[in-house]
Nucleic acid binder design. Sequence first.
DNA 1: CGTTTTTCCGTAAACGTTTACGAGAACACA
DNA 2: TGTGTTCTCGTAAACGTTTACGGAAAAACG
Lengths: 341, 341
Amino acid sequence: MASSIHDLARHLNISIGTVSRALNGRADVNADTRQRVLEAARTLNYSPNQSGRSLRQGATHSIAFMLQPHPGDQQYGEPFFMPFLIGLQAKLAESGLDLIVVMGAPGDYQQERLRRVVETRRADAVVLAWTRREDERIDYLTQAGFPFATVGRSRSGARPYPSLDLDFEKAGADAVDRLVARGHRRIAAIRPSLDLNFSYLFLDGYSKGLLRHGIEVDPELIADGFINEAGGYAVTPRVMRSKNPPTAIIFNNDVMALGGCKALAEMGIRPGQDIAVTVIVDTPLCRYFSPALTAFRPALEPMGQRLAEMLLASIPAFAGPEGPRIIREVWPLELVARDSD
Amino acid sequence: MASSIHDLARHLNISIGTVSRALNGRADVNADTRQRVLEAARTLNYSPNQSGRSLRQGATHSIAFMLQPHPGDQQYGEPFFMPFLIGLQAKLAESGLDLIVVMGAPGDYQQERLRRVVETRRADAVVLAWTRREDERIDYLTQAGFPFATVGRSRSGARPYPSLDLDFEKAGADAVDRLVARGHRRIAAIRPSLDLNFSYLFLDGYSKGLLRHGIEVDPELIADGFINEAGGYAVTPRVMRSKNPPTAIIFNNDVMALGGCKALAEMGIRPGQDIAVTVIVDTPLCRYFSPALTAFRPALEPMGQRLAEMLLASIPAFAGPEGPRIIREVWPLELVARDSD
DNA sequence: CGTTTTTCCGTAAACGTTTACGAGAACACA
DNA sequence: TGTGTTCTCGTAAACGTTTACGGAAAAACG
């Protein structure tokens, strides 16, 4: 079943060294022998043992994406990440790299899992998502000298590292601009309660947007909750019951918006009619909700591809002739105007 | 940085064999030396190189979950699988196994990816999801003698294999029962157009349910679409515009229901008032939609745990003293009555 | 034909583990 | 003291690759 390089060598009556060289496309092997080797490999259904080559080369040819549920959440934010992963995987495959997604148990915030991946050398590099404002994972990886890239920024990290993020700050400000232009002055912001960095960026943009229009930031109109439907559901009534309730709400993500709209519905408040609703990160949910939610859309699949390029560019073994480079980029979020505001 | 077993041996002035035995908890090593080895391992920050032990043992200590987007879909059905994966991963970890999620490119239906995993021995077993009625992956794995388990059943497979499925047939029939009891006789069914096995099971149950009440199955009330929001959106108007339109719709999954409800909204038809809507597989979306959707709920996390047990029980190396066993189970879907019917 | 270069291939070591085997030391028992 | 048993540990092979090195044969060159 499992045919090794020795089987090929024996079958062709040549040495294993030659077989290996032929397979790996090295120059010092006769064109004819190479042909025979490749053919034998096909007929004997040979494919190289990963453990063997990893051990010899000190490289696993795989990149790990760390997947972690948030505490209090069972959703992983996947509607967001799946298109991203498609792009990432496609680009990595071009360089012969496999993408593996490493699961963590809920609650331990990946540290333990990450250590495992790094120390047992299960992957050549990792991709981190859901970066936090202070992110111990980033500190650990830089300190360990392990290659990585992040989707999202962070304050952590002694050395620079490749990162790709969305411009949540601009989106937050743009959302305010649009609502103000439509006559709103009481605008609420609902965001995750965790230390997630994009949550801060969003709030910064929101605040700057308000100030730009001479509107004071009212703490009563800002609320934090779990980053899931239940979080939005729990927290939205709170801002609606403030002394001077908002006429518009900006939700930081789609699932919190879903929960929030549920709460609004139960209060008899209709998005798009009685209140304006804007969502920062667009997903199919926003589009197919009724009313369709105005949202800011990321280019997820291209982002995945780009992050792969950036990650590889930072690793000496994969970087081009000009040597490794650290690339950091922030991509725009594009407004998709729909019916909810 | 990367300390090996040789480093430990040199540091302690003993042989690598002894170190290895101490680390692996074998009996023939002095309690005192074991203590010293373990301590040195901690201070030198040793952890075994996976490639090394995999190569030697012929086992990778990891299980692969094959993740594949459907053609025409970018969603992966993750809201469904994530809690399942949490359970799966938790149980596998108890046996020292890592769960890795292997991505496939959209469209190639995993075959290529699966071959890669199997042939390069990247995992000791795989878990398949989204089983099809005729599933070449199952044929391939049985023929290759590679351990696997599925969530979902299939017609394929020369030999029996562990599988865990939900009782879509009963859920379909129960949904009909409930709707009939509430006075409906024109009941539509909307399901994925792919060869997915649960789609057939659902339709069987639906048909049997109707016949049980003496209601003829009307092909005009059955529609197939992409298993995503767009699919439900595209296909729902078709059944609504039939000569004798339905007064109730059963959707096979949450995302198609979301799209379908969008289409209904645009036609001025309100779920829960103008039409009854039932969803077979419950997710947070169903709960937080307005109106909350009546749905059938699976116990996803326990299912993940159970499948891990079943998979391990089927592998000689992990099975208990009574030897390997093939377990197949079908779990119930529990009705959660809400506001949409 | 002698010398140099090129082409091609075999040999063997190395990657980090695990483990079968055997041997020395300590101990028990008569 | 002689014999057998039990504890411990070192030695070395093996897992499947890749690759540095060197050498034989062929080709090129004068």
